[in-house]
Nucleic acid binder design. Sequence first.
DNA 1: CGCAAGTGAGGTATCGATAACATGCCTGTG
DNA 2: CACAGGCATGTTATCGATACCTCACTTGCG
Lengths: 340, 340
Amino acid sequence: MTDAPTPRRAPTMRDVADHASVSPMTVSRVLHDDPRVSGQTRERVLASVDALGYRRNEVARNLRLGHTSGLIGLVVTNLANPFYSQLALGVESVAGQNGLKVVLTNTDEDVGRERRLVEELTARRVDGMIVVPAGSDHSHLDPQTPGSVPVVLGARPPTNLALDCVLVDDFGGAREATAGLLAAGHTRVGFLGLPPSVWTSSERFRGFCVALEEAGVSLDERYVRLQQRTIPAAEEAARELLRVRRPPTALFCANSRNTLGAYRAATRLGVDVELAGFDDFELADVLGVPLIVAYDPRELGRRAAELLMERMSRTDTEPEVQPRRIVVPTTVVRYGNATR
Amino acid sequence: MTDAPTPRRAPTMRDVADHASVSPMTVSRVLHDDPRVSGQTRERVLASVDALGYRRNEVARNLRLGHTSGLIGLVVTNLANPFYSQLALGVESVAGQNGLKVVLTNTDEDVGRERRLVEELTARRVDGMIVVPAGSDHSHLDPQTPGSVPVVLGARPPTNLALDCVLVDDFGGAREATAGLLAAGHTRVGFLGLPPSVWTSSERFRGFCVALEEAGVSLDERYVRLQQRTIPAAEEAARELLRVRRPPTALFCANSRNTLGAYRAATRLGVDVELAGFDDFELADVLGVPLIVAYDPRELGRRAAELLMERMSRTDTEPEVQPRRIVVPTTVVRYGNATR
DNA sequence: CGCAAGTGAGGTATCGATAACATGCCTGTG
DNA sequence: CACAGGCATGTTATCGATACCTCACTTGCG
């Protein structure tokens, strides 16, 4: 007497219609609160909907209605990095507020994979995409391509394309923090960073160099290391810097992994070196890293999503809008030493 | 002479067919590498595909082919928590390997929101879902419901439902770490945790209590605080514990926020108290927290996704499989004090 | 009492892609 | 020279939902 053991297939509108002895059209009307349905019929249909556990198939619906999937794609390079998961969080929150869902994908910094993912998301007819591009070839993101969807770039600017993007003030933050070190009297300042082929890294390095220049301090290449992607690598690089003949008395670290590596190296070598670093992280205050360039990656995600929403709502008939570039500001935080 | 200024609408298969002067069917065949198409026609079709920038509409395709969207839903309670972003990472990696994409949603621990999200994802016909349930009412996840999709629960077990789930060994980890503190000679051990209404918290607390019992130490409620969800709250609670008349000489912290709060309180009060905590975190070694219950949230995500893949591939005709419960083990890590 | 306006519900075509079936053409062979 | 058979392509129906049009029946008013 109970239900079938395996009620697998999802009931369709036709099932409901049959069950209520009406046409599918009437079911559709009831579900749309169309006033042209009699109260009695409405009741009967709703009862059937309930009895069968019917749920409208959004896929079919969207196909029929025009091309809107209610999904936006998010393509990031490395989800393991808290920066990107925070960014995803920001995107999700704005998308959610707008009734959209986020399809999350990870490229692992692989340009080929990125290309494929963008392709697939487009084929899936997402309503828009936020992409943190892995490389500097952005040809697959060209908004001129026929079936393309609105795209906003995150954290890195477009190359040769008219795309919106949201950036961090990498240059300004690095410059200000470096200036802070110089103002404290340091003249031998080292730099730990990522390869400058990554745009953000290059900007941070540029900020560092400009700060030196403005202070009349010349850049010493022996104090520069640009290849550390992991904490252990950063620690090793910092060790090397701290063991040259006249070692730097301060280090600017271009991201949190380099900061942590430098902190470990300094702690383990028992060397007194002042640190400044890009990216805030939990416990920065406890460790007593004096200068941290802080910003909110969630804000980056939110702004990117907002920009995308705006692009998406724009109809083709409206005048073309110039691509916009939003720069999220950074704050230099001065943490006292927790141990006093 | 150049392309139209706004080449908006995505070209359809019919457009390609017209452009190549063939029927849509032929285009479909070419796209499927069907050998029954002459080389010449194939060339022509491919040229048209290229010329128009055609991309197959996956939505329409999936609708026609049967009910598989190539998407799986991920519903978590709080993406801001690194635990869940790591979990998401694990899910994404396994999904990606299986050609699936992940729709990421956040409930903010709101049961109503969770209900709605599950509903929407189902309506969207995701192929499966991984859910970290916010509350203990799981009625909306009942696999008996007609149109429901396979569900795997993450981090928390199902209530009254036959659902697969992947858990952390909360009990075992807490017990082992607490036992470690007791073995080191502590008899006054405090507990900092979350409200026991959350399953994981209650399990960790249970592990703590069992360890005490096994060591013949009686539980002192004055040493227990179960309401701290943030680092500041945890710090405050720890301060209180450390200022009672005969304060605990060791603290077991049920998650990383409590551990960090306790660490801060201890540092700032200048009190010497031994810490043990659930959840590993960056710098735990540097801080010298002696005992950390570590596990990999990504592994949790991976296992959950694997379980889901298995469920999804199961056809209705195969015999029913008992719901499975996978427990991801924890490791108690002993960090020496970094400063020696 | 007759006809127009109004009301509730069904029929058909469509979104884009595709499986199953159907058709037309060319070649080979008795 | 006619017809069987294979090969390349076109037609039709379908997935689930819905916009638009049509139709049957009721009601109102002159």
